[in-house]
Design a protein around this nucleic acid. Structure first.
Length: 744
RNA sequence: GGGACCGUGGUCUAGUGGCUAUGACGCCACCCUUACAAGGUGGAGGUCCGGGGUUCGAAUCCCCGCGGUCCCACCA
């Protein structure tokens, strides 16, 4: 061993050694004592970042420890390929437009493969002991076939339906808009107060920015709060009356108002009044009219109260099927004209600045968006709330406080899960077609199918495929517990779609798998979606435990992100220090909490590595050949053995509670203080005098330290182990239960 | 506006009802002792954000406030 460790050489040699012995990291599903980890497949729209490094170091730490405990560990690595972020990169960085679909998709594939190559290298460098033979991509043929198979299965179980649902639509670009392309812009506008006659001879006063949607109004909503009648027969919130010094004639409880009926002027439609918790009592008069569709809230309320869908705006942004005076006019023109037409019913007009949902992704458009209903696919989850709450209880979430995020989200389900994406090209196709107004799934043997490419397969169905729609990306990733088992069961086998049903039944036997690990920011999506999908598909829980980690912050405590320009490339740290030092930092984080990046911790880790190295050098210099086992124990021997035994026991507890930072600190203290500073200094004389017990213990306890620290610092421990002990195997092949016997 | 999480020596962090409050980095003093000065030994440094409450006992539980971070909604 040299005076100083050369990290570059160690990294290269050890990575080489691991790749040559990849069998050791291979998961054999047929062997028992399995420990299966459902790892997060990163989005392949960019390079690996510090957040990936943190979460995968955690996963690998556990995987390596469990292997030392004798488990048959499955640490899969996957890549989530589809989605808008990749599309945007291809459009903006490669300057390729979506006009030519085939060319665009090809560019997405190239980009994705480039990113996977780069990410794979980073993950490898981190020292991940993933199964090299089962790396999955969501764009693998067999992956796509499996996702489509699960969709067909859910469709046959009547869990998927096709129904009309409003999507964001840009009337100027005449195209569907995804959430990520839309944003709010502050614009000037008018808040128009309209008096709506009631059947008790008064007027309900509502405030709206969109009077042109008058014909789409089908309901009046009020808050569960106090309302009043003012001197000119207006019914408004008590708050509004007080703020505007209106003379109050009488008060109403909201329940009284629910008995009234309202007539919409000009169209003479009679509509009801209902109270709802989501109505903002403080806004306007505390009373709102629901028009299909003025804004996202209208969509929610329409669903909730089962309102009729009355469409007033066409795809090119003109008023349709409304009153004659405004039919055919552009939305803005109609809005202006309404001031005149409605003048007998207008109480007042206020000039306001408000945020308008607009097409912000294209700076040359910025047009306000409309909601236009289109046929789309849905998974029916609206009525499953109670069931999902039960399913959730089968999973132990760590830390427990994160359960709240999940339960809150479940309690807020008020819509079905829209799984159609109308705008996306870089996505998976639906395995369905339409014939005579009915939806049919394709035959299993045709999976995977992409109607944009597989023209031959499509032909024989004589139906209409959904070429303009792709599947929500979370549909692909929300079955990873099944996917990893699927890859384990089909390793080295040629893909054959006919075997899917049989495989699917086999997969079910292995559920639940042991652990899901992920960040809290995707509890509402990935965690929730997986619980729903896996339970619906298999009637089983996806995992036993779910370990939640926080976000990586920069040294000032801000979220690390590319857009803020404060992101640090993990490769940079691994170049400058070492993968082990990065791991040391990552493993000091606590579950669920955000965690700062700290160069101090990296340096402290690096110093510890050197300490370990130097202990190794001392042993190499003083012990030339493998010492024989002699245990004639002196007091200091007994003491160090006692601490060691205790630490091994405590390690197990820490791991079971996922308290990795405690584990790291425990073994750092043991190696540095108890062993090097204390014990080693005490026995130096005995070593000189060739005391057999001292030599044996020095040699053996150091080996145990290397083994116990291997999950934390895999490179340096592997390297020293190979140099010093020459046992012709990887350090990970040792078993904790057995090494402890060496000193008993 | 709603919600979640957090606030512990100079900096970062562990602890979530009970010994003198953990550790890292930094700082100070001494020691270049033959594995290691990227080392060793010793030391200084804290009203555990503020206030109130529960308790025999609170950094820890509850309430109010202040500050930070993130998520959701910013609407009719």
């Amino acid at each position: 061993m040299d005076k100083r460790p050369d990290y570059k050489i160690i990294e290269k040699e050890i990575l080489n050694l691991w790749n040559k012995n990849k069998e050791i990291f291979r998961f054999d599903i047929n062997k028992d004592k399995r420990y299966i980890i459902d790892t997060p497949p990163p989005f392949t729209s960019g390079e690996a970042h510090m957040g990936h490094a943190l979460e995968f170091i955690w996963i690998d730490f556990l995987a390596r420890y469990k292997r030392l405990e004798g488990y048959n560990v499955y640490l899969p690595l996957g890549f989530d390929c589809h989605g808008l972020p990749t599309e945007l990169k291809v459009i903006n960085k490669l300057k390729i437009s979506k006009e030519n679909k085939e060319q665009f998709i090809k560019a997405c594939i190239d980009w994705t493969n480039k990113m996977i190559e780069s990410m794979y290298k980073t993950f490898e460098r981190l020292g991940l002991s993933f199964d090299r033979d089962k790396v999955y991509k969501t764009i693998d043929r067999k992956y796509e076939a499996f996702v489509q198979y699960t969709l067909i299965k859910m469709f046959n179980d009547n869990l998927i339906e096709r129904k009309r649902y409003p999507i964001m639509w840009c009337p100027k670009c005449q195209t569907a808009i995804s959430m990520q392309e839309a944003g709010y812009l502050e614009k000037e506008g008018y808040l128009i107060y309209i008096k709506l006659p009631t059947n008790n001879g008064k007027y309900i006063l509502i405030a709206t920015t969109r009077p042109e949607l008058i014909n789409s109004c089908s309901l009046i909503l009020i808050a569960k709060n106090k309302y009043v009648e003012t001197e000119n027969n207006l019914i408004v919130s008590k708050l509004y009356a007080e703020k505007n010094n209106l003379k109050i004639i009488r008060e109403y409880d909201y329940k009284e108002l629910e008995n009234l009926e309202v007539t919409i002027p000009l169209i003479n439609r009679k509509v009801k009044i209902i109270s709802d918790n989501d109505v903002d009592y403080n806004f306007g008069t505390g009373i709102v009219w629901i028009c299909t569709y003025g804004d996202p809230y209208d969509i929610k309320w329409k669903e909730k109260y089962n309102l009729p869908e009355i469409i007033s705006v066409s795809e090119d942004g003109r008023i349709i099927s409304s009153i004659n005076e405004i039919n055919g006019l552009k939305v803005e023109e109609a809005r202006e004209k309404m001031k005149e037409i409605l003048k007998d019913y207008i109480y007042k007009i206020e000039k306001i600045k408000h945020n308008v949902l607009s097409h912000t992704e294209r700076s040359d458009c910025l047009s306000p968006l409309e909601f236009i209903p289109k046929e789309q696919f849905f998974i029916k989850i609206k009525d499953l709330k109670e069931k999902i709450l039960e399913w959730q209880k089968n999973i132990k979430i760590i830390p427990e406080s994160e359960v709240k995020r999940l339960v809150d989200w479940i309690n807020n389900i008020d819509q079905d899960w829209n799984i159609s994406r109308t705008k996306m090209l870089w996505g998976l196709a639906f395995p369905f077609y339409e014939k005579d107004g009915k939806i049919y799934p394709v035959n299993i043997e045709d999976l995977p199918i992409d109607p944009r490419i597989d023209k031959e397969k499509v032909k024989k169905y004589d139906g209409k495929f959904f070429e303009d729609e792709t599947v929500d990306v979370w549909i692909e990733s929300s079955i990873t517990p099944l996917i990893i088992l699927y890859y384990a069961l089909t390793e080295n086998k040629e893909f054959n779609p006919k075997e899917l049903p049989e495989l699917f039944n086999k997969i079910k036997e292995y559920l639940p798998v042991d652990l899901r690990q992920q960040g809290y920011e995707i509890i509402r999506t990935w965690l929730f979606d997986t619980i729903v999908r896996v339970n619906l598909l298999t009637n089983k829980s996806p995992w036993k435990d779910a370990l939640i980690h926080g976000m990586v912050l920069d040294e000032k405590g801000r979220k690390m992100s590319k857009s803020l320009g404060n992101a640090i490339d993990p490769n940079e740290i691994m170049d400058k220090y070492s993968p082990d030092a990065l791991r040391y930092w990552a493993l000091l984080a606590a579950p669920g909490n955000d965690y700062r990046f700290s160069i101090k911790d990296i340096e402290s880790g690096q110093a510890f590595i050197i300490k370990l190295w130097n202990i190794g050098r001392y042993i190499e210099m003083n012990i030339k050949e493998k010492p024989e086992k002699v245990l004639e124990l002196k007091d200091e021997d007994k003491e160090i053995i006692k601490i060691l035994e205790e630490n091994i026991k405590r390690s197990k507890e820490y791991i079971n509670q996922f308290r990795y930072s405690e584990y790291v600190k425990l073994w750092r203290k043991f190696a540095w203080e108890d062993f090097a500073n204390n014990y080693l200094e005490k026995i130096k004389e005995r070593i000189k005098n060739n005391d057999k017990t001292a030599k044996y213990l020095l040699y053996t306890i150091y080996k145990i330290i290397l083994i116990m620290l291997h999950p934390v610092l895999p490179y340096i421990t592997e390297y020293i182990y190979q140099q010093l002990y020459k046992e012709n195997k990887l350090i990970i092949e040792n078993k904790i239960d057995e090494i402890i016997k060496l000193i008993l």
